[in-house]
Design a protein around this nucleic acid. Structure first.
Lengths: 248, 248
DNA sequence: CGGGAGGTTGACCACCATCAACTGCTGTGG
DNA sequence: CCACAGCAGTTGATGGTGGTCAACCTCCCG
């Protein structure tokens, strides 16, 4: 439990993609301090129905938001990566309407909502950046709805992978092709409305068609254009968060 | 093309559900003027990819937001009713990522985004109300994702109907049971990821099970508790927008 | 070495899509 | 006033996509 500044580097990068910050505004974000915590995978950070009084910055690792139906079937509604502020919505809504859970070992940083609100009052453009992020999140939910509601299984899986890769690349990671996905097949199923068994079959198909590489369960991109074509992937629904990718 | 004040009555009611306005704030909203327009059903108000510089208040009638996949299959991602400000997201995002279309004859009121922004600057609590509305919209997208991804056809259809009825009742309409739905079966299918044919069969099942009444295509609620139970419907995902309903 | 989590594969089946035909309204024009 | 077109709804037959169940494998880690 220490305070960190380092954790906010990726946060600042991300905010700058949404809205160019002035030096003072950058300082204001950089001087935010977080109570950091190391958590293992599958840690529930926020539970549906809970009152939330603090926000969580994902510093390292990955997490998802999910809801469950009456039979306990799980629908993942979003995937988060380092630099994402989780629970920004709880600045204005007091109860969580979904669960928030890590899917890998992770480092998170907690901050009181009151303190965040203070910074946003003092620097309206920081507030605007957060609002923009929330609106882009909503756009991504809509795209996921289209994905789950009106695309077949292969396309859905390919689309999920494209989105993830594009976001990670935008985040500044190395060429995304070279990077393995941190997803279990069950997780992909829960995000796409499929079963893990069927996800497995679709991954095989995508690999047979030359879009993906697989070796002992780990997946990498074999052919971005082909994958993207199969996926019907067009990143414009992520607005400023992800630039259109030029090269192959 | 006249300016109206009357159109904002429902808007004020709605904002007050999200956040109690002061008399001055209420005045500020009430004095907003809109360029009104009568449009017929199926009018495209905003097209995906368009630059948007004005917002649209739905005064009378119903509209939906939708996206399409490569094969032209349509996914409806939200349904709007009188009093809803459409395109609030375009205060901060300049391009539309989905289509906006009326589904009935409707009256809409246009307002320049600049003018809205001015009011929001002068009255931060009005800005806060709009932000809260956007966040609740996002929560509804998440619930729809769960609906489409992890519920079977009968439950999906029932859930859609429950949500619509609860919202309309919250809006102050008469007992929702007595009200017919303005939906074609194809529309219900496009909102739930089903075909109109299967929606038809599910409506029949719901009526056989005593949850709905049907007479020449028009649907009313027969037994709210039963329908709600079939639907797994719990309105808390709509936060302050819809109060928990106490009676039957 | 053993247990557990995740991945892989096959057999079987159900839910929902597809296709097609028919009905009943409603609005419109002759 | 009727004829007709068009849209929405209804129903049946048929088939495919993806779910379910089960067995087995691999890898990792204690």
């Amino acid at each position: 439990m220490t305070t960190v500044v380092a954790g906010s580097t990726k946060l600042i990068q991300k905010i700058n993609r949404l809205l160019k910050l002035s030096p003072e505004e950058t300082d204001a974000v950089a001087s935010l301090t977080f109570q950091t915590e190391q958590v293992s995978h599958h840690t529930l950070l926020v539970r549906e129905g809970e009152r939330v009084t603090r926000c969580c910055l994902l510093i390292e690792g990955y997490s998802v938001r999910h809801k469950t139906n009456r039979n306990g079937m799980r629908q993942i509604v979003a995937i988060h990566m380092p630099g994402d502020m989780l629970d920004l919505q709880h600045l204005l809504l007091d109860r969580a309407d979904h669960n928030l859970q890590t899917i890998t070992n992770a480092t998170v940083g907690w901050i009181e909502i009151k303190r965040l609100k203070k910074v946003m009052l003092a620097f309206p453009r920081i507030a605007e950046a957060f609002a923009r992020e929330a609106l882009i999140d909503a756009s991504m939910f809509r795209e996921w709805l289209l994905n789950v509601g009106r695309r077949d299984a292969k396309t859905r899986v390919a689309h999920l992978i494209c989105e993830f890769v594009a976001r990670r690349e935008a985040m500044g990671d190395m060429r995304a092709e070279e990077v393995m996905l941190p997803f279990t097949q069950e997780l992909v199923g829960d995000a796409t409305g499929l079963t893990s068994v069927h996800v497995n079959r679709m991954l095989r198909r995508l690999s047979e068609e030359g879009a993906l590489n697989r070796q002992n369960g780990a997946v990498t991109i074999a052919d971005w254009q082909r994958l993207r074509n199969i996926a019907e992937f067009d990143p414009s629904y992520m607005h400023q968060l992800v630039e259109e990718r030029v090269g192959s």
